[in-house]
């Protein structure tokens, strides 16, 4: 019964708030019971929510860079929808991290009037972000953008599908909502990869370049962090290694059909992004994202 209430609260909040008109201006988790289930370390849970939330936030920011620059107006609207979905997921997940007290130093820098989600998004240093290298990388051209979206959405869909059974009811509800969204992101990206790979000579070359650039980034998803291992054992989180076969299967299927060469899967490596090790491209992205909010730390927007 507990889970159903949470689910409904989220499902009903989706209508207005998702489209940002009307009355949907509430805190993302308003009205949701945020009690942590027994036997789960809140610090771990919060850290895990940051991983998934940061992935969504950073990818949303990357996709937003296409706005007013997209190939066709129809695609502009499509990319906007994907970015809005991810932004919505980021807000829920960051708010969930805040609700279990995982705020780090961000709370010291942000004034009290700043909600948790914004304290976390705007007042953490790059080293405190937990996203993978896959979402942080530059967009490149449209082909690379779509290959990356395909890879990121395939991974995310596999994770969220399993998280629907998470012992944390809030995470389970967020995942249930997200699965529907990310399934569309993946399919839309796959349709593009198909058309670009099997389109013209130029689009094939660009799509293959995109694949070759994106594949090495998948290494950052191969190994669980300690947090993920502990939470997976507790039935709260997903061990990323458990979804790798599924992800490989989907990506190989799409690339094969798109007449693209599937590169060798990168060897497993120690987690980097998930423990805060990032390249300069993330710092640059966050500089733009956070600049204005940090110029006016006492402001309310």
């Amino acid at each position: 019964m507990h889970e159903e209430t949470v689910y409904e609260a989220l499902a009903n909040a989706q209508d207005d708030g998702h489209w940002a008109f009307g009355t949907g201006f509430d805190e993302p988790l308003a009205g949701v019971d945020t009690t942590v289930p027994d036997g789960v370390d809140p610090t771990d849970l919060g850290a895990y929510c940051l991983m998934l939330g940061d992935d969504a936030l950073v990818l949303a920011q990357r996709l937003t860079q296409w706005m007013t620059n997209a190939p066709e107006l129809e695609e502009e609207v499509a990319i906007g929808n994907v970015a809005l979905d991810l932004l919505g997921q980021a807000r829920l997940l960051l708010a969930r991290a805040g609700s279990v007290g995982v705020l780090g130093r961000s709370r010291e820098l942000a004034t009290d009037s700043v909600p948790d989600e914004d304290a976390l998004a705007y007042f953490r240093a790059p080293g405190e972000f937990r996203n993978t290298a896959l979402v942080a990388a530059e967009n490149g051209d449209f082909a690379r953008t779509m290959v990356r979206l395909l890879a990121a959405a395939t991974v995310r869909l596999a994770v969220l599908a399993r998280l629907r059974d998470s012992r944390d009811p809030v995470l389970a509800a967020i995942a249930a909502k997200g699965v529907k969204e990310v399934a569309y992101h993946r399919d839309h990206a796959a349709r593009w990869v198909l058309r670009l790979g099997d389109g013209t000579g130029e689009s094939h070359r660009r799509a293959q370049d995109g694949v070759d650039a994106v594949w090495p980034l998948l290494a950052d998803l191969s190994t669980a962090t300690d947090v993920e291992t502990r939470l997976a054992a507790a039935g709260v989180a997903v061990d990323p290694a458990d979804v790798l076969d599924e992800v490989r299967g989907v990506l190989t299927q799409v690339l094969d059909q798109a007449t693209l060469r599937v590169p060798e899967w990168p060897p497993a490596a120690a987690p980097r992004g998930r423990v805060g090790e990032h390249g300069p491209e993330l710092a640059e992205l966050l500089g733009t994202l956070q600049g204005l909010a940090r110029q006016h730390p006492a402001a309310t927007w």
Partner: peptide
Amino acid sequence: LAAPSLRRKS
């Protein structure tokens, strides 16, 4: 890209 809150960005 620089909207000062996630709500405003959405």
